[in-house]
Design a protein around this nucleic acid. Sequence first.
RNA 1: UGGGGCGUCGUCAAGUGGCUAAGACACAGGAUUUUGAUUCCUGCAUUCGGAGGUUCGAGUCCUCCCGCCCCAGCCA
Length: 564
Amino acid sequence: MHTDDLESSANFIQNIIEKDLNTLKFDGRVHTRFPPEPNGYLHIGHAKSICLNFGLASKYSGKCNLRFDDTNPSKEEEEYVQSIMEDVRWLGFDWEDRVYYSSEYFSQLYEYAVRLIKKGKAYVDSLSAEQIREYRGTLTELGRNSPHRDRPVEENVDLFARMRAGEFAEGERVLRAKIDMGSRNLNLRDPVLYRVLKATHHRTGNNWCIYPMYDFTHGQSDSLERITHSICTLEFEDHRPLYDWFLKELDIYRPQQIEFARLNLNYTILSKRKLLQLVEEKHVNGWNDPRMPTLSGMRRRGYPPNAIRDFCERIGVAKSNSTVDFALLEHCVREDLNKTSSRVMAVIRPLKVVIENYPEDQVEELTAENNPQDSASGSRKIPFSKVLYIERDDFMEDPPKKFFRLGPDREVRLKYAYIIKCERVIKDEKTGEVVELRCTYDPDTKSGSSMGGRKVKGTLHWLSAAHACRAEMRLYNHLFLKENPADEKECPDLGASVNRDSLEVVRTGFIEPFLKDASKGDRFQFLRLGYFCVDNENSSYDFPVFNRTVTLRDTWAKVSKKST
RNA sequence: UGGGGCGUCGUCAAGUGGCUAAGACACAGGAUUUUGAUUCCUGCAUUCGGAGGUUCGAGUCCUCCCGCCCCAGCCA
């Protein structure tokens, strides 16, 4: 009934679309496209664009195409095409039968170029790259015409055909639009349309040795696909006059380009170039390293696609450059996981506890709730016995007043079990390290009973030592400590800025026995520790590996930090 | 110094001349709690980059100023 209350307010692109719908500008159609270049893996910034384009199409009963913008064979690979499709699907979007490649349009684009040449609106230039740069002028100085600008049409037609036939080496000839070398907009100073590239294309092989530039490809591809709203990022604002110029000169269907601000996230980088650098210099273990802001990394880390979509919805769409707080992403992840994950017990850094007054060979099956947020999730049995493991952090020999976990002579409840009291602390004689706690339990305080009318402040998670299984836990923190690692002044050396504690591998962990049977990717809440998922690459039955997706909110950590 | 954009709470972000400037995250208090989790309350911009002006009325219109981002690839 009040679903409107839950929807976020309309963004400026929706306003434009609604206006266009009212004026029937595109016959009341909405048709968008997500146009990645297959030269890297998708990251959370792309997710914003994916959610925007597919979301708009769905909201207005339109369509959204997936289109690979593959006009630069020297950087693009099939591997990236596959990963991109997997990621878009994982995020929950469906392009149905509409997956396209700019390279499918190479013949059409070639024909468009010839058309422009014949119209006297394009010419083949023989200047070198450096010369073209010099002739282009600068931000404040206008450009100069190339000496080849006024070649006769017939000669241009012939030269372009010979470029296509492979008669020229890379850099020897380019096709340029004849627009205005005196334009204040650099993009209009006779932009290059085609360059010679003797590279093998991942889809067209060696059919072509000339390749169209982005500007000459994107708008026409949009046009061919009858796109209505071509949504791109802010840096293409200056290209819009060029986008429109081609469509007008070619006299073909004209979509509308709209620009929005790309996503920035603090404590991370969202530049494909820099992410590639992290991978190539081995600062991370590949594109799907759970510390990476790539969708494959987040998937492996355990982020639910729902949470990412929710995040993209919440951050909004606008034109001002902005940096979103990473905490919002984590909030979305926790919110989803809180509703959906089973609670289980696991111990990362075990400390042995012996219940001195508990019968030697007794094992009790205690009842544990699977998810208090979901009454349908039921319960399970967990074994309790004389020797247990608790978390090392849950014991302090000399605790501060506000610490309400275990300490000498203190009492805590063991979740689902009993109240225990720490009677003695056993230390390693040489190192002084605490190695074991001798405790007693109060049989009257069994979980679910009347508890003997007693209450204690702290509740700990635990595992029966005889039943627990070993597991590896991978604990992740921000990949960068600096809030803005994208800033080259702040972080001139990207590799040196990587947080050395961004990954902590703990091989001493223990889990409830049934967790060995969990499938790769399964998500759980490890009680009081955080959300974890089974690693989708390295986990095995004999030695399960869990990735920490995100910690639980930890008020105590804040309090204790403040007091030190 | 040319062109194109953008400036509303710590961070995002609504607001399209007229009720006391939405909401979210963060933060701070408090309640409940066998997860220091969750949940629930409460607080958090007398002011919209600045200065003038128009108007009965301006975050919204005008002028000037200031700050930030993008553009000089045969990358996208």
